[in-house]
């Protein structure tokens, strides 16, 4: 009855150019520009952390009850530790037959405070499902990882439980994950839009 979601996504012209947000950086004051004062501030902070943690570790080592000192994880050599309930990169869920669960109701798009979800709906071939997403994009560069989209979804079609927090790319366009990538049907290429020399 159902057929899998289309492999190739047709994009309307209005989506072709993804709007970039312009960020104005604060202007540096004199104190920051002469550099040495700020370097001194930095060293004070680092040393404070060093001595506080040395003190805590020492007290624990000799058997006194004390707050645990900070532990350094050698990220990225060691993997990042993410809590089980942590909100991480989204994924779109599938039905048993492999079709996307999403019915393009736009609840997530509506609730999203960062306005980073873009959905275009279409007719589903299955009359009992009726509606499905033709385009489903999440711009991870804008997402604030609030998890509202997961809360809003009436179909359990979107979850934030992949444990993946690394989503860097070389430009803004590559921060946008499309439906096939979110469904796990296609591996995200972090440099799809980098011009190759």
């Amino acid at each position: 009855m159902t057929d899998p979601a289309p492999e190739t996504q047709e994009r309307p012209a209005s989506l072709a150019r993804h709007p970039a947000r312009i960020v104005t950086r604060p202007v540096m004051r004199f104190q920051e520009r002469i550099y040495l004062i700020e370097v001194w501030h930095g060293l004070v902070i680092t040393s404070r952390h060093f001595f506080v943690n040395l003190w805590r570790h020492t007290r624990r080592a000799i058997g006194l009850v004390a707050r645990a000192g900070a532990v350094t994880i050698q990220y990225p050599d060691d993997p990042a530790v993410v809590a089980k309930r942590g909100r991480t990169r989204h994924r779109l869920m599938k039905r048993e037959d492999g079709t996307p669960r999403c019915v393009a109701c736009m609840m997530c798009e509506t609730v999203c405070p960062a306005k980073c979800i873009k959905i275009v709906a279409e007719e589903s071939p299955d009359v009992m499902i009726e509606k499905r997403a033709k385009i489903f994009d999440i711009d991870m560069g804008l997402c604030v990882f609030c998890g509202y989209c997961v809360e809003a979804c009436p179909e359990d079609a979107i979850r934030m439980d992949t444990g993946q927090v690394e989503m860097s790319s070389f430009n803004r366009q590559d921060m946008v994950w499309n439906m096939q990538e979110l469904l796990g049907n296609k591996k995200k290429d972090p440099a799809a839009n980098v011009p190759r020399l």
Partner: peptide, 8 residues
């Protein structure tokens, strides 16, 4: 506000 829905 959301031009992609109606194809612009």
């Amino acid at each position: 506000k959301r031009p992609w829905h109606t194809d612009g």
